Simulated scan of single mutants.
Amino acid sequence: MGAEEDGRRGQPRPRRRGQGELEAQVLSVLGEATEPVTAAWVQEHLDAGLSYSTVITILTRLLDKKAVTRSGSGRPVLWQSTASGAGLTAFRMRRLLDQRDDRDAVLSSFVSALSPHDEDLLRSLLGETGPGSTDEAER
């Protein structure tokens, strides 16, 4: 079987975007701005060919996640990034973790699946003397 068709004169269906992909693209564009910008500016700088209302929806979702700020009374409303793409991913990870009753099991499973490099990085970031850890001399 070939590619699925979407009913528009036999054209293949466009690829469905991954969850959070548009948010990451908008944050990336906002990260390039040297000052707060309008939604129209964001729309112009995206390669996604999105409608203005879609850009506003994405910006509003990012505002709810505290990944962007909105300023200006009346028009124009100006938008500015408060988080990088990495910050938004970290927010999503915390939100998913907060939704689970078995937080310890989730964290344990996550850490056990890390590559040695990522595990070393995590240890470095946490520091060996962080809360709940024992000092090397005590081991």
Rank of each mutant, 00 (worst) to 15 (best):
V26I: 11
S28D: 12
S28M: 06
L30K: 06
G31R: 06
E32P: 02
E32K: 14
A33K: 09
A33Y: 07
T34V: 12
E35D: 08
E35R: 15
E35L: 11
P36Q: 05
P36N: 03
V37Y: 03
V37I: 10
A39G: 07
A40C: 01
A40H: 10
A40R: 14
W41M: 03
W41F: 07
V42P: 03
Q43G: 04
L46Q: 01
D47R: 14
D47M: 00
D47I: 04
L50A: 06
L50N: 00
S51F: 08
S51T: 15
S51L: 09
Y52L: 07
S53L: 14
S53W: 02
S53V: 12
S53R: 15
S53A: 12
T54S: 07
T54V: 10
T54R: 09
V55F: 14
I56A: 05
I56V: 14
I56T: 05
I56Y: 05
T57I: 05
I58A: 14
L59F: 08
L59M: 11
L59C: 05
R61F: 03
L62I: 04
L62Y: 05
L62D: 07
L63R: 14
L63T: 11
L63H: 15
L63Q: 15
D64H: 08
K65V: 12
K65H: 13
K65C: 10
K66A: 13
A67L: 07
V68A: 08
V68G: 09
T69L: 12
T69R: 09
R70C: 11
R70D: 00
S71C: 06
S71T: 15
G72D: 08
G74Y: 03
G74F: 10
G74Q: 09
G74N: 11
R75T: 14
P76M: 10
P76Y: 04
V77E: 08
V77M: 05
V77I: 09
W79K: 08
W79E: 05
W79T: 03
S81L: 07
T82K: 13
T82L: 15
T82I: 07
S84L: 12
S84C: 05
A86E: 15
A86C: 08
G87Q: 12
L88V: 14
T89S: 13
T89V: 14
A90L: 11
A90Q: 10
F91P: 01
M93T: 02
R95I: 00
R95C: 01
L96W: 06
L96H: 10
L96G: 11
D98W: 00
D98T: 04
Q99H: 12
Q99K: 05
Q99V: 00
R100T: 13
R100C: 12
D101I: 11
D102G: 08
D104V: 13
D104H: 10
A105E: 10
A105L: 13
A105F: 05
A105P: 00
V106T: 01
L107V: 03
S108C: 02
S109H: 01
S109K: 00
V111Y: 01
V111Q: 00
V111L: 01
S112T: 02
S112N: 04
A113W: 01
A113V: 00
S115M: 02
S115C: 03
S115N: 03
S115W: 03
P116D: 07
